[in-house]
Design a protein around this nucleic acid. Sequence first.
DNA 1: CTTTCCAGTTCACTGGTTACA
DNA 2: TTGTAACCAGTGAACTGGAAA
Lengths: 335, 335
Amino acid sequence: MTYRRVTIVEIAKEAGVSAQTVSRVVNGHVSVSEETRQRIQEIIDRRGYHPSRLARSLLRGHSNAIGVVSFGLGLYGPSQTLAGIVRDADAQGYSVLPIVLNDPQPSQPDRILGQLIEFHVDGIIWAVPQIGPNHDWVEETAARLDVPMVFITGEAHEQATVVRVDNRAGGRLAADHLIASGKRILGLITGEPDWWETQERTRGWTEALQARGLPIRAELMRAGDWSAAAGECAMRELLQSHPDVDGVFVGNDSMAVGALKAVRELGRQIPEELGIVGFDDIPEAAYAHPALTTVHQDLHQLGSQAVAALNSLIRGAPSPSSILIQPRLVVRNST
Amino acid sequence: MTYRRVTIVEIAKEAGVSAQTVSRVVNGHVSVSEETRQRIQEIIDRRGYHPSRLARSLLRGHSNAIGVVSFGLGLYGPSQTLAGIVRDADAQGYSVLPIVLNDPQPSQPDRILGQLIEFHVDGIIWAVPQIGPNHDWVEETAARLDVPMVFITGEAHEQATVVRVDNRAGGRLAADHLIASGKRILGLITGEPDWWETQERTRGWTEALQARGLPIRAELMRAGDWSAAAGECAMRELLQSHPDVDGVFVGNDSMAVGALKAVRELGRQIPEELGIVGFDDIPEAAYAHPALTTVHQDLHQLGSQAVAALNSLIRGAPSPSSILIQPRLVVRNST
DNA sequence: CTTTCCAGTTCACTGGTTACA
DNA sequence: TTGTAACCAGTGAACTGGAAA
């Protein structure tokens, strides 16, 4: 590998000027004679010269890059969120440096942040779901770290900017809708119990039931792992042990799609005998059988807002400490 | 933003040694006394010092980063492939710098490559689908560029390493399976016609039909845009104009899911009256109604192989010019 | 007395940009 | 209009001064 980049000095030498003059041409400074400018530009184009961002960042003290710590690109939520981040970051002139964790419980968040700091990132978006105590370090670290940082999803923090979907409102939307459809014996199939999203959706659900004077029945609740297989299994089990259930809120669409399969196989009529509401609004939801009523969350917007908040932090502007994105109900044929 | 990184000089000053000695501690060189090493390490830990990768890369001439040019993270294929790349790159010690295009027809691939070169990436994976003539620059550029480069999907090239799924074999698998299931009047709903994947799947399909002595009937072919909506629309149109069709190969699972909806609404029995085969094996395929028979392609492996090939190119080893990954048929209830 | 080793320092250099001449 | 020198944050190579072989 004797590969050598074209450097500014080589261009300068070929043009018979100093590196400085080439730099001026590259950055569009004025004080270069038109004749020189053109000669240099021609050489730059011909040689395929690209100024080194490394050298430039080193000198300027910032890199125009942001780090994104993400988790489980296989899941719909995280991958869509990352897509939103990348798109917006690009539009704002930032490059994105993604770090994808396989373990949502990073034993050493400092090590991961350190990796990004080594790249001189101008800011960091932490988009790892809050699971159990895995965000406990936030308060302490956010206060200590001097790189601007934005969190996606999770508890609000005094010290940190958090952008998230109002999952609690989403849970309420689902419950209110089922109740409004005349359903009264309501089951709940949640995602992983220790995810913040699960807890919030469940809380909203519970609140709505209480507000309507319906009992909270733990025996009608099941937990899955977000997968269609888990949804199918949980729904089958729920319907067999409690055949009188007439409405179920399933914690995400993947599980809901699995749940629909169980319901079909058990021969229940949807929505007449059993109403089902999902969460996410994945593209396939509209084509499930029957088409799935679900709580839509705008994940691209989630990413956009995170980038916007980070950008204003980087520019030194104060940023609201918490941004809440409202989900909305999409009614289809499963209710 | 008066944020200042901790530098090696600050550590050196605090420890009362030269920067070089700190560098040796950081890089685990030998000629440092145990006593000094420990003192410096303690300061490094306490101050949270992280060596600048920018400075290091600049000096060493390589960055341990690879650039990935991708397209449309909203689609299942590209996003899964990227996930595979990120995971494997990480395992090999590379950071990933993604560039996500919104337009699959980059007017100036050089500009995009230039962006990555500015970052001193050690190699580039071009994972943009080959659509129409948008890979025409490859031969010429690959020969000129001296950064190792691997292409994902598309025509094989003399000069370039291409990693791809054997889409043609996939098309054959689908056709052979439908024929083996006793279907004889076979329809085809393809994705976007100018995608390389579409053309290969179609070619494999055509070959298999010819091999079995079945006619190629253009009036039984429709094209969609990979979306479920397009699949639904195409299937409805196909069945209404040709009610005798008894088997259909749909170019991807998203469209197949839409197609299933159309079939259900038209009241055809699957698989008795009509067999359907998809392509991709998205997670929801197993939970469609009926469960979708489909051609599975291992996209993570696609990403892995690309990283492996790129890695060996970077290390100067010769790399096979084309790697073909075999898809496999997953039979479920739609056939 | 020369050679080798050790622990550490100094210098030059990476590819650019800013301040000043 | 253009050139020179200093600088960003590191690292490889050459070097120093003293001890051990």
